[in-house]
């Protein structure tokens, strides 16, 4: 506790070295989550490594295969508004635009947000729906973990001690696919009671591909390939939707808390899924 320091390195190497040199140190990105937890006395880092000056964490790169690489220090606001996203990748900008409020979106970063895996946070489900991968850097190099594997348990991720989120790689979505994020919250800006993130591709009147992830309904975003498959080949009719929704609801493991009961959270999953499908109907007609 006596060695508390804040370091603001300019390179990723220096940041990692600093993390390594001081066990128990934590990375400071926008502060929206970490400082709130420090103020509440929930975390007491020995030292902080501020990432603000690490330029390599900021960039956005368009990949040759249509994918996008987003730096960990990308602010929610940027993801919400300055959209480089195409097709179903837009699930990310929809999710980012519903995080907290404009001021917090101006502070909070992609990396900072996902590093905590708050069950009510908006990015995790969106990243899973987008089939994104998380780029992790550590003393021994870089590794890439699928979003599904990255979120491990309540407030727990695949990050090991001394590792940082460097960024997120969002693969190209199918051409013509639609992204959407449907969030239910008590009031604007609250953590989600439950949310549905999805990417859907239509082929004529039926769904050719779908990827659904449920947020706010368990320790990690809930994604079931089986539920995706239930929609494929259908016209997203209420039967198919409710079957897929029920499957997801049964698999969900939501908390019972002041935001909502676990029963209610399960109950609204199929309903939010159906609503999300209805919400994207205009986009589908336009496509």
């Amino acid at each position: 506790m006596m060695t508390q320091t804040m370091i603001a390195p300019e390179t990723l190497e220096d940041a990692l070295a600093a993390m390594h040199a001081e066990p128990g140190s934590m990375a400071l990105a926008g502060g929206a989550t970490l400082v709130a937890m420090m103020n509440a006395g929930l975390v007491e880092p020995n030292s902080l490594v501020a990432l603000r000056h690490v330029d390599t964490l900021r960039g956005t790169r368009q990949l040759d295969d249509g994918g996008i690489e987003l730096g960990a220090m990308r602010r929610h606001r940027e993801t919400a508004l300055e959209t480089p996203f195409k097709d179903g990748q837009t699930v990310l900008s929809y999710a980012a635009s519903q995080i907290a409020n404009p001021t917090v979106r101006n502070m909070g970063t992609l990396g900072g947000s996902i590093a905590f895996n708050d069950p009510g946070a908006d990015y995790p489900a969106a990243l899973v729906a987008a089939n994104a991968t998380i780029l992790i850097v550590g003393a021994t190099g870089t590794r890439e973990v699928s979003a599904e594997a990255f979120f491990v348990d309540w407030y727990t991720t695949a990050l090991e001690a001394g590792e940082l989120v460097a960024g997120v790689r969002v693969p190209a979505a199918l051409v013509g696919s639609i992204g959407h994020y449907e969030k239910l919250a008590r009031i604007a800006g609250d953590f989600a009671v439950a949310s549905v993130a999805l990417q859907v591709t239509w082929s004529g009147d039926s769904i050719a591909a779908a990827r659904i992830a449920i947020g706010g309904s368990g320790p990690t975003p809930l994604h079931l390939a089986e539920a995706d498959d239930m929609l494929i080949g259908t016209g997203a009719d209420s039967d198919a939707l409710s079957k897929a929704g029920l499957l997801l609801a049964q698999a969900a493991d939501p908390v019972d808390d002041v935001r909502a009961s676990a029963d209610y959270r399960r109950k609204v999953i199929p309903r939010l899924l159906a609503k999300a499908m209805r919400e994207i109907a205009p986009a589908r007609e336009a496509a």
């Binding site: 509440a40 407030y155 808390d257 935001r259």
Partner: peptide
């Protein structure tokens, strides 16, 4: 105390 203010739902799950 400090942990009492942390989300009860998650604590219960844990």
């Amino acid at each position: 105390g400090r942990l009492g203010k942390f989300g009860l739902g998650v604590m219960k799950k844990k």
